[in-house]
Lab assay of single mutants.
Amino acid sequence: MFYPNSPQTSPQLTQIPYGQQYAMMQRQIQQPYHPFATTEPQARLYPYHYQGPIQQEQGGFITQQSTAASPQYVQMRVTPVDQSIMSGYPNQTANGSSSSSFNYNIHPQQQQQQQQQQQQLRHHAMPVGSVPLQDDRYRKQLIVNYLAPDVTSTDLHELFSRFGELDGARIIYDKQTNMSKGYGFVYFCHAEDAKEAVERMSGYEFHGKWLKVGYSTNPLNIVPSNSSPYVHAGSRGAAG
C-alpha cells in the first residue's frame, strides 16, 4: 500500500523548493479562506456584503464582478436614472436638479381664491374633541361614552347635575331594538360647569363602566337656548 506522503511516492527534499517541504498533501497545500485577509477597505468593513468592485458596462447597466450573493443577503441591482424623465418638472436647472418651490404660472386672482378656499376649509374642519370658538353652545354640550346598558337618562342627569344647572341629558337608544347604544349627551347651562365635568368625570366608574367624557361637536345635538329642557323620564321611549 502506498500513501500520498510515503517515501516511495514523495520526491527528495532537495528537489522541493524551500517553504513547501512540509506541504505535501493536497489539504495542506490548499490555503484556508480568510474573509478579512484583503487589501480593499470595503471588504474589511463589510465582509458579507462586499463582492468586489463595481464596473460600468456598455448599455448603462451596473453589474458586479463577483458571483451571486448568499441567500441570506439580498443584493440590489441599481440602474442609472434617465434624465429625460425629470425634464417635465418646473424650475429645473441645466444640471438636472430642481428647486423646492414650484411655479405653475397661476393667475394671481386664482391663487388668492385657492388660498381663501383653504382658509375656509381649515375654519370649518374641526378635529374630534375640539371646541370651536365662534359658538358658545359647543362648550356646553358633552358626550358621555361607555355607558352601561342599564343607565337611563334620569341617572345621567343626576350624575352630572352636581356640577351645575343642566339644560338636559339623554341616552341614545336603538330604534329597532330599543336598547341603549352605550353613549349619551349632557347639556349644561354654563360653559364653566361643562369644563369642570369634563375634567372630573373622564375615567369615572359608573355602573361598572369607566366613562369617557368630552365635548360634543355635532351641531345636530345642540340644544337651542330658547327651547324647553328635555324630559328626564326613566322610560326608554321618552328618553330616546
Rank of each mutant, 00 (worst) to 15 (best):
Y146W: 03
R170E: 00
N5T: 07
E205P: 13
Q110M: 05
D174I: 02
Y230K: 05
L13F: 13
V128W: 10
I106Q: 04
V131M: 11
R170G: 00
T79K: 14
Q26N: 05
G182E: 01
P127E: 07
V186N: 01
Y183S: 01
S130R: 14
Q30K: 14
G96L: 05
A94W: 08
D193K: 14
P35N: 04
L147E: 01
Q134M: 14
M201Y: 04
Q113W: 14
R27I: 02
Q119N: 10
Q120D: 04
G168Y: 01
T67N: 12
Q83D: 10
G88K: 12
H157D: 07
A68R: 14
G182Y: 00
Q110T: 09
R236L: 07
S6D: 10
P35F: 03
E57Q: 10
R27H: 03
D155H: 14
T63S: 11
G234S: 09
E196H: 10
M179Y: 15
N145I: 01
P11R: 14
D136R: 06
K195M: 12
E196T: 13
I143D: 00
S84L: 04
Q141W: 00
V78D: 10
P7K: 14
G234C: 14
I172F: 00
A125H: 06
I222D: 02
Q72S: 12
N5M: 06
T154P: 15
Y48F: 10
S98M: 15
S227H: 06
P108K: 14
Q12D: 06
P219T: 03
Y48V: 08
E192L: 05
Q56F: 02
I222C: 03
V213C: 10
L220G: 02
I85A: 09
F185I: 01
Q117K: 10
E165M: 14
A68E: 04
E199Q: 14
V186F: 00
Q72A: 12
S98R: 13
F206P: 00
Q110H: 13
Q111P: 06
H207S: 05
S161A: 09
Q117F: 10
I171L: 07
S97C: 12
N103A: 06
A238P: 08
Q26R: 14
N221S: 08
Y3T: 12
K209W: 01
M126C: 11
K212M: 06
Q115K: 12
H207Q: 12
H232I: 09
S98H: 15
P32E: 04
D136K: 03
F163L: 06
I171M: 02
P41C: 05
Q120H: 11
Q31K: 15
N105L: 06
V128H: 06
A69P: 10
Y50F: 09
E205N: 03
Y138G: 06
Q113L: 11
P149C: 05
Q176N: 15
Q113I: 07
Q51M: 07
I106C: 11
F102W: 14
I29H: 11
F102Y: 13
L159Y: 00
H123D: 07
H232A: 07
Q30A: 03
V186Y: 01
P47H: 08
Y46P: 05
T154A: 07
G203L: 03
A197C: 08
Q176R: 10
Q15G: 11
F160E: 00
P219E: 00
M86H: 11
R162A: 10
D155E: 12
E158A: 12
F206I: 03
T152G: 12
Q115R: 12
L45F: 15
V213K: 00
A238M: 08
D135I: 04
H123P: 06
F185V: 01
S180G: 03
R170S: 01
P4C: 02
K140S: 03
P17K: 14
R44I: 01
S70M: 03
Q110C: 11
Y50A: 13
R77E: 03
S101N: 09
K140R: 08
